[in-house]
Design a binder for these strands. Structure first.
Lengths: 104, 104
DNA sequence: ATAGATTTGTCATAAAATGACAAGTCTTAT
DNA sequence: ATAAGACTTGTCATTTTATGACAAATCTAT
């Protein structure tokens, strides 16, 4: 899905006919803050991903992927990272993986 | 360069024959903390990038690119983001750019 | 105009990052 | 062997940033 995580939550919420207040309650947070999350003014707390998946009966892995790609996408956007630089970043991630192996 | 940012600093420091204490002083921080930075136990504070470039007579843009790719690479690594998901993340960054345009 | 839904502003608190210092280890020259 | 300098590690107070909560606003439909 090519949306922000906030939009993703809003979509799920609307599809299931819940109000901010109702979903917020299920997630154990304030409706005002959920509104901010949906509007990209705050981050969704990663710790709530399992609960979110549970509420909407989704595979946690899918939800987490949605979250991770949003987070990285945001960083790419905020740092003005070009495709070329992203390629370098990916190589550096790969390099870190090799470092990890060495430790073993 | 396919190294972590810590390794990058260490490389620059050694190439220029500086001790941790000497470089730390130029960067206005404690040598113990610079050590941690070089060993990936702490992050280099983005605010010091201009000073770092200045010390080693480097193009700030290059230094910043080194930094940005390290940061994103680290996140890719830590989140176990696959190439496939990274592609999605990139699309989401692109999507955010279109959102920004709409605001104008 | 009212009620419910959503958004925005603010602030106290909680969590994470940073700076500083002390004490440790490692290396090398003597 | 040990002294000196270089580097690493642990800890903690402080600063910065994120979060939760509440009040007050705006929006939307009846």
């Amino acid at each position: 899905m090519k949306t922000t995580f906030g939009e993703y939550i809003r979509l799920l919420r609307n599809e299931n006919g819940l109000t901010l207040t109702q979903l917020a309650a299920k997630l154990n947070l304030d409706s005002a803050n959920l509104s901010k999350i949906e509007n990209e003014k705050r981050d969704f707390d990663e710790k709530r991903l399992p609960r979110l998946a549970e509420i909407f009966n989704l595979d946690l892995t899918d939800v987490r992927n949605e979250y991770v790609t949003d987070q990285i996408g945001k960083q790419i956007y905020e740092t003005n990272c070009t495709k070329q630089l992203l390629q370098v970043a990916e190589e550096k991630a790969e390099y870190r993986r090799t470092l990890k192996e060495k430790v073993i």
